[in-house]
């Protein structure tokens, strides 16, 4: 059991922390492993075991979020209080964009948050995400694209930074309606 824990606990903890919040992660991780150990004999093969554990983790986190009456909303001011990075070229290495990303993640609906965490942060493939979320692969993909759109909407100013498009107007387009649209259109 300890070997199973050693192998999977970091990701289980990370999933619960990102989906349900850091304060809840330890308790949820304990619950996940206790539940898993009590039913461990049902599993054969490491890949399945990992997927199953992540499924338990995501379900536990999502259930916690839906049960929680005082859902921790990140007010817009919190996002605003994290300054935008000075230049987009520094975005990937700039801790401020990561802070804003963390804050925006908490703003996302839990289902969107789960799919972004699984795919973009944890790097899982849609086949496994579909197993974890109990949905079709196509649904996992479409949820991810919608989640990214929502996320980009929350991050818009941070991602745009002080960027100019190089020709001075920032609104170039190929058909005359290239104004920067809301992220929901992504």
């Amino acid at each position: 059991m300890h070997a199973v824990y050693q192998r999977y606990h970091r990701r289980v903890f990370a999933l619960t922390a990102r989906i349900a919040g850091a304060q809840e992660a330890e308790e949820l991780t304990q619950d996940v492993f206790l539940k898993a150990f009590r039913a461990l004999d049902k599993f054969r093969g490491d890949a399945l075991l990992g997927t199953w554990l992540y499924r338990l983790a995501v379900n536990a986190a999502l259930s916690h979020v839906s049960r929680s009456r005082d859902r921790r909303k990140v007010p817009e001011e919190v996002l605003e209080s994290v300054p935008a990075p000075p230049h987009p070229s520094a975005v990937d290495g700039d801790p401020r964009i990561r802070e804003r990303l963390e804050a925006a993640l908490r703003e996302l609906p839990a289902g969107y948050r789960a799919v972004i965490v699984l795919h973009d942060i944890e790097g899982l493939q849609h086949e496994e995400i579909a197993e974890i979320l109990g949905c079709r692969i196509g649904t996992s993909k479409s949820q991810l694209h919608k989640a990214r759109a929502k996320m980009r909407g929350l991050l818009g100013p941070a991602l745009a930074g002080e960027r100019s498009d190089g020709n001075g107007n920032g609104n170039g387009n190929g058909n005359g309606n290239g104004d920067r649209r809301g992220a929901s259109e992504l």
């Binding site: 745009a160 498009d165 190089g166 170039g172 290239g178 992504l186």
Partner: peptide, 13 residues
């Protein structure tokens, strides 16, 4: 340019 910028933002995100 507008769509290119959206693509870049998506990549950065």
């Amino acid at each position: 340019a507008g769509c290119g910028r959206v693509r870049d933002e998506l990549d950065r995100m």
